[in-house]
C-alpha cells in the first residue's frame, strides 16, 4: 500500500496533526516504506489463528464500584496551560447568536 499526499492529509486530520504541503510529501514516502515493511505480514495465512488479546491471557480485573479517589482538582489543574475558576479554557466553540 503506497500512500499519496492526499492520503497523508486525511490521516493527519484524523490524528489532529497540522502538516505543511512539504511535510505531507515527506510523510507519504516515509509512511509508504513503513507500510511496505508491515505488509510482510500478508505472507502468512492467519485464517484459523485467534488474535492474542493479552500475553498471559489474563482477564480484566474488576474492582468494587466505590469512590476511592479524593478530589484533587487544584493540584491536577496546576499543570494546565489555561484555566479560570476551575475550568479549562479553550477557544470559543459555539458561535454567539
Amino acid at each position: 500500500m503506497s500512500l499519496n499526499r492526499a492520503d497523508v492529509e486525511k490521516i493527519a486530520h484524523l490524528a489532529r496533526l497540522a502538516i505543511t504541503e512539504d511535510e505531507a510529501e515527506a510523510y507519504a514516502s516515509d509512511l509508504s516504506s513503513i507500510l511496505a515493511l508491515v505488509e510482510q505480514m500478508n505472507a502468512v495465512d492467519t485464517q484459523d489463528v485467534s488474535p492474542m488479546a493479552h500475553p498471559l491471557h489474563m482477564a480484566q480485573r474488576l474492582r468494587v464500584d466505590e469512590v476511592t479517589e479524593v478530589d484533587q482538582r487544584e493540584r491536577f489543574q496546576s499543570t494546565a496551560p489555561h484555566i479560570e475558576a476551575g475550568l479549562y479554557l479553550v477557544p470559543r466553540v459555539i458561535e454567539q447568536g
Binding site: 496533526l17 497540522a18 507500510l35
Partner: peptide, 20 residues
C-alpha cells in the same frame, strides 16, 4: 498545532501509521 509543534518527526510518523 499544539500536537504538530509539541511532537517530533518520529512520534508523528508513528501516530499517523497507527491512525491509518
Amino acid at each position: 498545532r499544539s500536537r504538530a509543534e509539541g511532537f517530533g518527526a518520529e512520534v508523528k510518523r508513528r501516530i499517523m501509521i497507527g491512525t491509518y
